[in-house]
């Protein structure tokens, strides 16, 4: 369903991504890992439609990906994903209101009752039915992310994009969230792209793992080369040595980038 052909992303002279070629089938669960600043988030934003590519092609069902966010691609950010002025239930119901054409996105009468029922079913599915009248500021970080996921799913997207969704959560809660995401992915037959900092999370969660890393380094001109996908693995049957190797290379790149920031 998704295809990238010789995709490049540059900011002025700085190359972020180079020579990305890939094909993704419907229903895959892909995790994107890599050092900070390696372009994995940039790639996710291109899928989302908030970043444009510099050259090459990024095709969804053979058509270029639209240059603005749309209902076929849902998103959960690390934070600020939910609307602070709506209760939990209103947040999820808003997804139904936004699906219908109209000036205000408010629902009335039968449409409102139906949206309410659907929203409650979705809240039950993510375990938030008892919190439906609370405001996001009253929720814990994990509950807020559950809400963001419920909201995104009620929009019935084909693709779900997750931008370090569990980065700010405690390890125990993170494990719960992993189970939830895996279950929803299977039940709703989604194609998932998830950016994560945590290599273990990437190995454990997905069906496929992409490692974004620089293959070429020029110490004199650190921005001359961009990152590309150095590993494209079907996860589940990878041995420990590969994990170590990727872990090492990503850490190395991270150190290089850190040094760079110190110098600048």
């Amino acid at each position: 369903m998704l295809e990238a052909r010789n995709l490049w992303k540059r900011y002025g002279d700085k190359v972020v991504l180079e020579q990305i070629n890939l094909k993704v089938k419907e229903g895959e669960f892909i995790t994107l890992v890599g050092a900070s600043g390696c372009g994995k988030s940039t790639f996710l934003k291109m899928l989302l439609g908030t970043e444009t590519l510099s050259s090459g092609e990024l095709l969804l069902d053979g058509q270029p990906i639209p240059a603005e966010p749309g209902a076929d691609r849902g998103i959960v950010f690390q934070q600020y994903s939910v609307f602070p002025h709506m209760t939990v239930l209103q947040n999820v119901m808003a997804a139904k209101g936004f699906q219908r054409p109209g000036l205000t996105g408010w629902l009335f009468g039968a449409a409102k009752r139906q949206a309410r029922d659907e929203a409650m079913v979705m809240l039950r599915e993510v375990g938030l039915e008892n919190a439906h009248s609370l405001y996001p500021a009253e929720l814990s970080g994990g509950m807020r992310q559950r809400l963001a996921i419920a909201q995104a799913l009620l929009g019935k997207p084909r693709i779900l994009l997750l931008d370090e969704p569990f980065g700010a959560l405690d390890p125990g809660i993170r494990a719960d969230m992993h189970e939830l995401v895996l279950r929803l992915w299977r039940e709703h037959q989604l194609t998932v792209f998830m950016v994560t900092h945590d290599l273990k999370e990437g190995f454990y969660l997905g069906t496929r793992l992409w490692v974004f890393d620089k293959t070429r380094h020029d110490p004199q001109a650190p921005h001359a080369y961009g990152a590309s996908i150095t590993y494209d693995l079907a996860v589940g049957n990878t041995d420990h040595r590969t994990f170590e190797k990727i872990d090492q290379s990503v850490t190395l790149t991270e150190k290089e980038t850190d040094k760079l920031y110190e110098i600048n």
Partner: peptide, 8 residues
């Protein structure tokens, strides 16, 4: 962005 991905 979130609202747009919900179709708003």
């Amino acid at each position: 962005v979130k609202a747009q991905t919900l179709g708003a």
